[in-house]
Simulated assay, not measured.
Amino acid sequence: MSAPADADRRSVSPLRLIRYLALAYAALIVYASLHPFSGWRDGNLTPFSFLEACWPRYWTLFDIAANLLAYLPLGLLLALALRSGSEKRMPPLPAALLAACIGTALSFCMESVQTWLPTRVPSSLDLLCNSAGAALGALLAVVGGARLLTFIRRCQRWLAPIHDADIILVLIGFWLFAQLSPETLLFGAGNLRGLLDIPSPVDYGPSAFFAIETAIIACNMTAIGLIVRFLLAPQHRVLGPLIAFFALAMIVRALATAILVEPAQAIVWLTPGAALGTMIGGALLSLLPLLPPRWQQALAALFLMTGAVLINLAPPNPYSQAAMAAWQQGHFLNFNGLTRLIASLWPFLALPCLTFLRRPRHLN
């Protein structure tokens, strides 16, 4: 392999990827902690008054588990990033301790700011659970961090030597995370109208909704599939990884729906329109990867924006309305706001990155 190719391959760095994931996850925690960012008021309380309060009257094991698990990935990612973030590498235990302290500090800041949000109740129990989650994640980094880094490095052989592909990998992770929401259409993204609570401009009948749902799913599936294909090294076959990727997305969707709504509705989102759109998207992805990479890149951007336009013209999803009625909003309101934000903004974040992605000339 030539020197330029070696430099390009080094540009896909597992350490940089971990740093990006840590920053992105911290940003998600801040958004989820302060959602819906409205109704700010001064209740004549200090931001540290929650520390003086008694043990919360109402709490459940679910709340404890959710607060603990929410900060576990943050502690894991921070410990790995700190441990490998410089030429003079920090030893595992100090990195884990610092990561746990950062997680605790972030939780303390979020609980303090929630003092001015009427929809949020700051709690010392939440701070304790969040801190424990960050510490547990940091401990996992000490125990299995080296294995995780080795696994990431081994996965590098599947990736094309594209500069800053780490950012696209993070965005693909965000796309999978957005599939956790049973409110959105399958693979749907870019619904700014829903994010801004703007009513549908057109009243569609059942047949029209079937057609537009099919088109939205086919466009988005084709776009994300081409993006994944663009990142894969050309010597590898594309069919297997794409099938595995979309199977994972559907499993995530089914499990999230079973947990957040009810088990009996785990695959209710697989409507006739969703099934047809998936088949059309699969057919397109069996042919379009045969085109040159630059054509694939352009078509991915085209399908991405077409899907975003269509989803903003579509009527409200009747299934999502039924699912939302079944949600335990006290537990999932902030999670729903987070997944809706990611799904709504994802195409507009992915398009600039996709536009500036460049493969080495010998791969085009």
Results as ranks from 00 to 15, higher is better:
residue 99 A to H: 01
residue 98 L to I: 12
residue 104 T to C: 13
residue 121 V to G: 12
residue 142 V to P: 03
residue 95 A to N: 01
residue 103 G to C: 05
residue 175 W to L: 12
residue 113 V to Y: 08
residue 141 A to C: 08
residue 162 I to C: 07
residue 112 S to L: 00
residue 150 T to M: 14
residue 145 G to W: 00
residue 176 L to Y: 06
residue 107 S to C: 10
residue 143 V to F: 12
residue 121 V to Q: 15
residue 147 R to M: 10
residue 129 C to P: 02
residue 138 A to M: 04
residue 120 R to S: 03
residue 123 S to M: 07
residue 175 W to H: 12
residue 176 L to T: 08
residue 144 G to M: 01
residue 120 R to E: 05
residue 160 A to F: 03
residue 152 I to G: 13
residue 110 M to I: 04
residue 144 G to K: 10
residue 166 D to M: 06
residue 143 V to P: 01
residue 175 W to V: 05
residue 138 A to L: 02
residue 107 S to H: 00
residue 120 R to W: 05
residue 141 A to M: 06
residue 99 A to W: 01
residue 154 R to L: 09
residue 99 A to K: 00
residue 150 T to V: 12
residue 162 I to Q: 07
residue 150 T to C: 14
residue 109 C to W: 13
residue 172 I to F: 06
residue 101 C to M: 14
residue 159 L to Q: 05
residue 142 V to L: 10
residue 110 M to T: 11
residue 118 P to D: 02
residue 167 I to Q: 11
residue 103 G to H: 00
residue 136 L to K: 04
residue 166 D to P: 03
residue 126 D to I: 07
residue 168 I to H: 14
residue 171 L to V: 09
residue 163 H to W: 10
residue 176 L to W: 09
residue 140 L to T: 05
residue 106 L to C: 09
residue 116 W to K: 08
residue 133 G to V: 04
residue 164 D to Y: 10
residue 156 Q to F: 06
residue 147 R to P: 02
residue 130 N to R: 04
residue 123 S to W: 07
residue 130 N to E: 09
residue 126 D to H: 02
residue 143 V to D: 08
residue 155 C to G: 15
residue 106 L to F: 02
residue 95 A to E: 00
residue 167 I to L: 14
residue 174 F to M: 10
residue 105 A to Y: 08
residue 131 S to D: 06
residue 131 S to G: 15
residue 153 R to P: 07
residue 159 L to T: 04
residue 155 C to N: 09
residue 151 F to R: 13
residue 149 L to M: 14
residue 164 D to V: 01
residue 132 A to W: 00
residue 142 V to R: 06
residue 156 Q to C: 11
residue 95 A to M: 02
residue 164 D to C: 13
residue 143 V to Y: 10
residue 148 L to V: 12
residue 110 M to F: 07
residue 107 S to M: 05
residue 130 N to W: 01
residue 139 L to Q: 03
residue 125 L to F: 11
residue 133 G to A: 08
residue 153 R to M: 06
residue 120 R to N: 07
residue 153 R to D: 14
residue 143 V to S: 12
residue 154 R to W: 09
residue 176 L to V: 13
residue 140 L to E: 09
residue 132 A to M: 13
residue 156 Q to I: 06
residue 123 S to Y: 06
residue 114 Q to K: 11
residue 125 L to D: 03
residue 100 A to E: 03
residue 119 T to F: 11
residue 129 C to A: 15
residue 122 P to H: 07
residue 154 R to M: 08
residue 150 T to Y: 13
residue 165 A to R: 01
residue 167 I to H: 11
residue 129 C to N: 13
residue 175 W to Q: 12
residue 98 L to G: 04
residue 157 R to A: 15
residue 175 W to A: 14
residue 102 I to V: 15
residue 176 L to M: 13
residue 105 A to H: 09
residue 164 D to A: 15
residue 148 L to I: 10
residue 153 R to Y: 07
